[in-house]
């Protein structure tokens, strides 16, 4: 089976209208049938056990499962220091933009933010400067609500919005994401990257699982050891299988855009692929590149832009 044809449960049990504005009812039997047809027997069994009323999945139950799964995902992000990885590239990117700033504030927007861990961590860290606005965007309003509640509980200076990252009232300066790109089919990536250019984004850095040879084994091991929710275990392992390779991502980004330098930000210890758990595909306006390289210091060797 083509790895891209397999579906994650979380992509199927929450669906929105074509404008992405409102949740629509999801028929449990349809999801179970789709997963079964794809040969994903275990995933089908997980969904078949979810409560439904009149055949429609219980939205409150689904919200609860997604909340718990994302909290477990946050734990993995904490363990693998993912915000620190993002900050290592984001901080010099913000500085590079600031040096050429044509508009302020600088809006850093996390796309598909889930519980907003990255944005809240950046707000708590407070490293990026007072001219930086931190915004998390997700289509899932229950996760956005939970992210807002968590930020409010700790008085963090950031906000969360339900909707489309490329249709915000206040346009994004830098767009980030963690673990989102593998949710897109390879053929959809080009239009996704094109949307950055259309929206006038200055730079993007989309972190996702690096499809190294040990990634599926590592994902299985970690989801077995750390995750409790069957959905989180199932989707987590599949995400490592579905992850796009560097060539697919950079080709799509180059095909979809013309005003960015595109590349991948690598990592030291390339011979130990387990350390390269996630890595970003990067796009940045050419006028910012020199400043970004200076800001990265010795790490600039790992930024392979074309």
């Amino acid at each position: 089976m083509n790895k891209g044809s397999r579906r994650e449960i979380s992509d199927l049990i929450v669906q929105h209208d074509p404008l992405g504005q409102a949740r629509v009812p999801v028929e449990r039997a349809a999801v179970v049938a789709e997963l079964a047809e794809l040969g994903q027997v275990r995933a089908a069994r997980i969904v078949s056990r979810m409560p439904a009323t009149g055949g429609i999945l219980d939205e409150e139950y689904v919200n609860g499962v997604l909340f718990r799964s994302h909290a477990e995902l946050q734990r993995l992000s904490e363990e693998f220091l993912q915000p620190q990885r993002v900050l290592a590239l984001l901080r010099p990117t913000v500085a590079a933009y600031r040096a050429h700033a044509t508009r302020t504030p600088i809006r850093v927007v996390d796309f598909g933010c889930g519980l907003g861990y990255l944005i809240r961590w950046l707000a708590a860290k407070g490293d990026l400067g007072p001219d930086v606005e931190l915004i998390g965007v997700d289509f899932n309003d229950s996760l956005v609500n939970a992210a807002s509640a968590a930020a409010k509980a700790e008085s963090l200076k950031c906000r969360f919005v339900t909707g489309d990252v490329f249709a915000l009232d206040e346009p994004a300066t830098i767009v980030t994401s963690v673990g989102v790109l593998h949710h897109f089919a390879a053929q959809s990536l080009e239009s996704l990257f094109r949307a950055h250019e259309t929206a006038g984004v200055a730079a993007f850095m989309h972190y996702d699982i690096a499809p190294t040879w040990p990634a599926p084994l590592g994902a299985w091991l970690f989801h077995a050891a750390r995750m409790r929710e069957p959905l989180a275990r199932q989707d987590g392992v599949l995400s490592a299988v579905r992850a796009h390779d560097d060539e697919t991502l950079t080709s799509a980004a180059r095909a979809g855009t013309s005003s960015y330098r595109i590349g991948v930000f690598g990592t030291p210890f390339a011979l130990f692929p387990v350390t390269r758990i996630i890595r970003p595909v990067v796009g940045i306006r050419p006028e910012l590149v020199d400043q970004l390289r200076r800001g990265l210091g010795r790490m600039h060797r790992h930024l392979n832009l074309e």
């Binding site: 409150e60 919200n63 609860g64 909340f67 309003d141 229950s142 956005v144 609500n145 939970a146 992210a147 807002s148 509640a149 968590a150 409010k152 906000r159 969360f160 919005v161 339900t162 909707g163």
Partner: peptide, 8 residues
């Protein structure tokens, strides 16, 4: 968390 509504 789910009782709290986000702005926007």
């Amino acid at each position: 968390a789910h009782r709290t509504r986000a702005p926007g």
